[in-house]
Computed example of a mutant assay.
Amino acid sequence: MLDHMANEGGTRFLVVTHHPLTMQERGVSRLLSVDLGRAVELAESG
């Protein structure tokens, strides 16, 4: 369903997280752009 929405509808998704890896400093989040298709390719090839 997400794949269809992204490819056919041009929908973008926003995920809000307070995971330590996405925080530049304590209490301050940053914008992180991820190509999920590429991430899946990398995960499947590894």
Rank of each mutant, 00 (worst) to 15 (best):
R12S: 13
V16H: 05
E8V: 12
R26V: 05
V15N: 01
V16K: 04
R38L: 09
S33Y: 10
D3C: 04
H4D: 13
V40T: 06
S45E: 15
H18C: 08
L36D: 02
T11Y: 09
L36F: 07
P20G: 03
D35E: 05
M1V: 04
G27W: 00
E44K: 13
A39Q: 13
G46F: 11
G46E: 15
L31T: 08
L42Q: 14
A43F: 14
A43I: 11
H19F: 07
T11S: 08
G9E: 15
L42K: 11
S29P: 02
R26S: 05
E44V: 15
S29Y: 01
G9C: 14
V15W: 05
D35F: 01
L14V: 13
V28W: 00
R38T: 06
L21C: 05
R38H: 06
L42C: 09
E8H: 10
S29N: 09
V16F: 10
M1F: 02
H19N: 13
E41G: 07
G37A: 03
V34K: 01
H4K: 12
F13T: 09
T22M: 03
H19W: 07
L21V: 06
H19G: 03
R12H: 12
A43C: 11
G9W: 11
P20L: 05
M1S: 11
R30G: 01
S29R: 09
T22D: 02
D3G: 07
L2F: 13
L36G: 02
S29A: 11
M23P: 00
L2G: 12
E41D: 15
A39Y: 08
Q24T: 04
P20H: 07
L14D: 06
M5D: 13
G37H: 03
E8N: 13
S29V: 08
A6V: 10
G46P: 06
